[in-house]
Design a protein around this nucleic acid. Structure first.
Lengths: 329, 329
DNA sequence: TTGTAAGCGTTATCAA
DNA sequence: TTGATAACGCTTACAA
């Protein structure tokens, strides 16, 4: 491995001169600088990241932490993050799993974006207390080293629920996320506000898990209880897909007997028959904003918590209900 | 930031004793060791990765490089890789984009898995020459520091093509990948072998790009030329999906007028109407094997190139052709 | 069993 | 404009 020491020897200068030349400092003459650069090139010199990180106390790397690599939500989110990070001179790495948490406290990365419930909030606060910079996408956390970029869950859940009501449905199932999930809790809050306001509707809550299996289990219950058309708000698309799968095995038809809306507008929903109604938001923007906030945090700029806006995507998975002649306004 | 120096001072021992204790060496007495450990705990000590990496000349991190984060193929592949890596004491990070290439030569990671055509083969050989360890998933490359874990593309393409022929189709479109793609070239080789063998079939090749847009463009051509039912082998599922999208806008029906098979068996195909016929392989196993081979390479164990086997997934996207009464055997 | 000290490859301060 | 030199935080001979 060739180091600046080797270059210095070959060029007949000191290592500090080499370092300056390599870093484009104006302290060395154009002449020596270009001579050193040429030698470095010739010797196939490549700097050592660990040494640089150790000395400079920064790696210029941002880490994103995901619960797993499977989620369909992530593609655009990560691309948005990468683009922003790269444009500001940072590299982005994606990590998953308990083992990888160490990257942050061990200072392998300069900051972290969290979309991963395997981090407890206490853990994150601990890192923040050690002055590590963090952007959370999946919870609320107040600390000067932590910034939030959250979905407008409440607006989304309100849009979805009101859409079902507007379409004349009077029996509405809500399939929730797993118990502790922030997104699920937020979305449920919005649903409950509507429940308090609108009284002529039968509400049935089913605990889900944000995974396909949760939708399948919910479907089983709904099928078993089926007496008349009903609407279902799955708090994410993946469960809606699981639910569809299971319904497809019966004589019930989505959009006719079961009226379904999801949340996330993942790619797959576009290919469902009928098209799944859902809540959309720009995943790319979400990622870009998260990276931007993190970099600001790192450079000590002041940051405000941010919010990602959502919109309703209509779809034939929600048909007209028996009571659509008395629309809710 | 608390370092072993601080611990040493507080414990009244030397830094080397602290280091030994922290690393569980049997060179220090149980007594001092536990005292040191307690102090470290109390001081919230966390080791510095850069320093350790610099000194030990290894990071215990494996990198995977992907062309982009969007691909639908990656979830299980990465999970398989992560699982194997973690079980062997390595962390896994996922990188994408030209900028991130430096991770390997700058020794941030101990080795790389490549599924990313933004790396040229020359570039990879250069890294290998610098003794960096690499596993390639998307090309053939011969070097003692490079190992291949490749799909059995030829077997897959043969299965797919023969399936179309068996079902009695006499006019077969092939939609290829982008010009330089290794997978595309390999798959085409298998197709061409069949072309040489089976003569009563009309073959039409369309250049694609392995993306949805390629399938859409191919569809346009096929629709325009349409006179009688035809079969199409899209060299990957994504193009098959794009093709379906476009066909859906016409009066032609998949499985009746257009008989379609893809390659990859991505998640989405299961939700298509009708089910897309395709070629399946275990993405999880692929990832696991890649990680395993990379770790062997790093530890200096001998490795052989590996192959991932594939199988045919039938689907109603391929109906019977007019000539199915004379099956090809 | 513990301590001393060298060194991993950089950056950066201070003198020359 | 350049050079000596001291860190950065850690591991690991070798000495005590």
């Amino acid at each position: 491995m060739v180091s600046i020491k080797d270059i210095a020897k070959k060029a007949g200068v000191s290592i500090s001169t080499v370092s300056y030349a390599l870093n484009g400092s104006s302290k060395v003459t154009e002449e020596t600088s270009s001579r050193i650069l040429a030698i470095a090139q010739e010797m196939n010199y490549i700097p050592n990241a660990a040494a640089r990180t150790l000395k400079k106390r920064e790696s210029k790397i941002l880490g994103v932490f995901l619960t797993d690599f499977k989620g369909d939500v992530y593609g655009d989110l990560l691309d948005g993050m990468k683009e922003t990070a790269n444009s500001q001179g940072y590299d982005l790495i994606v990590c998953s799993g308990k083992q990888s948490h160490r990257m942050l406290p061990e200072r392998m990365i300069d900051g972290a974006v969290i979309l991963d419930h395997t981090f407890t909030s206490e853990e994150l606060l601990e890192y923040a207390a050690r002055s590590h910079k963090i952007v959370v996408l999946d919870r609320e956390l107040k600390h000067k080293n932590i910034n939030q970029v959250l979905l407008d869950n409440k607006a989304g859940a309100t849009l979805a629920t009101e859409y079902l009501i507007e379409r004349g449905h009077k029996k509405i199932y809500i399939v929730t996320g797993p118990a502790g999930s922030f997104d699920s809790i937020q979305r449920m809050k919005a649903v409950k506000q509507i429940q308090d306001r609108v009284h002529d509707i039968e509400w049935i809550e089913i605990e889900g898990n944000f995974k396909k299996s949760g939708g399948e289990k919910a479907a089983d219950q709904i099928i078993q209880q089926y007496t008349e058309p009903a609407a279902v708000f799955c708090l994410n698309d993946e469960m809606a897909i699981g639910l569809c799968d299971r319904i497809a095995d019966t004589s019930l038809v989505i959009g006719e007997h079961i009226h379904l809306i999801g949340f996330d507008n993942i790619e797959l929903t576009r290919y469902m028959q009928p098209r799944l109604a859902t809540i959309d938001y720009s995943k790319r923007k979400w990622g870009a904003l998260a990276a931007e906030q993190l970099i600001k945090l790192i450079s000590g700029e002041p940051v405000e918590n941010e919010r990602i806006y959502v919109s309703l995507v209509k779809g034939d998975s929600v048909g007209k209900g028996a009571h659509s002649f008395t629309p809710y306004v």
